[in-house]
Amino acid sequence: MALIDLTGPDIELLLTTLYRQYGYDFRQYSEAHVRRRIMNRFILSGLNSMTDMQARVQNDNKFAALLLQDLSITVTEMFRDPEFYRSLREKVIPILKTYSFIKVWHAGCSTGEEAYSMAILLKEAGLYDRTTIYATDFNQQALDHAREGIFSNELIKDYTINYQRSGGPESFSSYYTSQYNMVIIDQSLKKNIVWANHNLVTDSVFAEVHLILCRNVLIYFNKDLQNRVQTLFLDSLINGGMLCLGTKESLRFGEFEDRYLEIDRKQKVFKKKY
């Protein structure tokens, strides 16, 4: 099959159709990311031209749904970046302890591994019972998976290592029960998590949140969209509330750097100034 030339206007047209017809707006996402996903889907589906692909998106809901899944990268782990979770234990939990109730927002929670990791940390610190975790994503399929809390056995081996590296004091197996080749997350970890569909591009703020985690989501956005989302976060946090970004993300663009103090420079933990 000949290599297609995917031009800027081709991509724009496809994204505009996705937005107009299905309501998902990827027009301010990283072009390299979008291009890679479109090219992969093009090849996998054995299409012949961009005109074909455009027609499929327009006329075939199932195909469009596939492409939407492609564009939402849901790769995640429990205790991904153990050093970050160590920082949460040592630097963030002590601040959260001073509040009588705690609201946490995981923006872009994917299949839930990160929110469950947070539930474990809070439980170990004796804070979970006074916490509500709002875990949001725009990918309903991922949210449904998250709510079930069933993960493959294969993955648990890595998660256990991550947990131990993060300074976890318990036996990790106390947080799930095994069944066949799956594990089911303990019911007690689920009770204060609210799973909700929320699109960072089009939806609005969450009020009075003490802690926001948005990790490995902003890397897919262009600068303008990053700024929109940073405004959303700033407006959602209480004064003194904290924001955690992914290891390779930062506040360095726009006017946001001045609005926060650095709690952990390397692990990207920030505190909103009073």
Partner: peptide, 10 residues
Amino acid sequence: ERDKTFALDI
């Protein structure tokens, strides 16, 4: 990216 900046992907 086409504008000669880097993008990361996980």
